[in-house]
Design a protein around this nucleic acid. Structure first.
Lengths: 138, 138
DNA sequence: TTACCTGCAAATTCTTTGCACACGC
DNA sequence: GCGTGTGCAAAGAATTTGCAGGTAA
């Protein structure tokens, strides 16, 4: 799991510098950047890289399960290299997205699957509010 | 609560036919239509109504708390006249959005607020999967 | 060479905005 | 008549796609 290059090779996908850079950026940050943020942060290392490449890479990594795409509502998608299902909390003011420990085990997935007859694949739990910094400013 | 026209008046907002139509359409459907779907469904009653009006009205109704905007990820926003916080289940194939009864009371809101120091305003719980109809087709 | 990948630019989709006309009080 | 609301069209933003050239095995 540590070696993303191997993971990619196993899937028959070339481990290009751009792809690895995007993956490791996500792996080493606690923030949940948008495609555009990733693009800007990598533009110093890869001045020629285009936003389209970032999108293509993010789609690719999402499809093979190396990262997950989360949709917090406001504007754009966010990305997370932590592919386990964990809740997120979003600041409505500064748009920061943070992880939340899973206090409620939420076995509800099984219950919901049974009740709805859906074949459930994943779940997302979001909390919306104001982070301590933004709340102080009020 | 039943009379939307009164609710609007109380807020100093005119209860126009378009606004009421949009609200009642949402109130009387179990689906969670997108702005465009609402537009299409009302175009027979209001042939001259524009999509911009639908968006403006949806924003307005959301702001005054008569409806809620939910963001299921894929493509566009969905709208719901049920403003209580209840989980939704989304079919990844036909994009249908359905309500789910709240099996887990999720007092986690209080716990999370305490642990994170956020001033939490709302929460959203989504389940993603394949509905019985779409799953059969596989 | 061959297949895959990148990066540019254009296209697409969803949503918002500006503005002029229309309506009700 | 005035203020608000509607509808058209254009703008804006996020994301996707097509294609030509580049790179690595």
């Amino acid at each position: 799991m540590e070696n993303a290059a191997l993971m990619l090779k196993k899937k028959g996908i070339k481990a290009t510098p751009q792809r690895l850079a995007i993956y490791y950026l996500l792996k080493n940050t606690k923030s949940h950047p948008s495609a555009d943020t990733i693009y800007q942060e990598l533009s110093s290392q890869f001045p020629t890289m285009s936003l389209a490449t970032v999108y293509k890479t993010l789609d690719l990594l999402t499809k093979i399960g190396l990262i997950q795409e989360i949709n917090v509502g406001e504007d754009s998608f966010r990305y997370d290299a932590n592919t386990t299902s964990h809740p997120h909390i979003i600041c409505l003011k500064c748009k920061k997205v943070e992880d939340v420990e899973d206090y409620c085990p939420l076995d509800s997935l099984g219950i919901v699957a049974e009740k709805t007859n859906y074949n459930i694949v994943s779940q997302q739990l979001f909390f919306y509010g104001y982070c301590p910094e933004c709340n102080d400013g009020e």
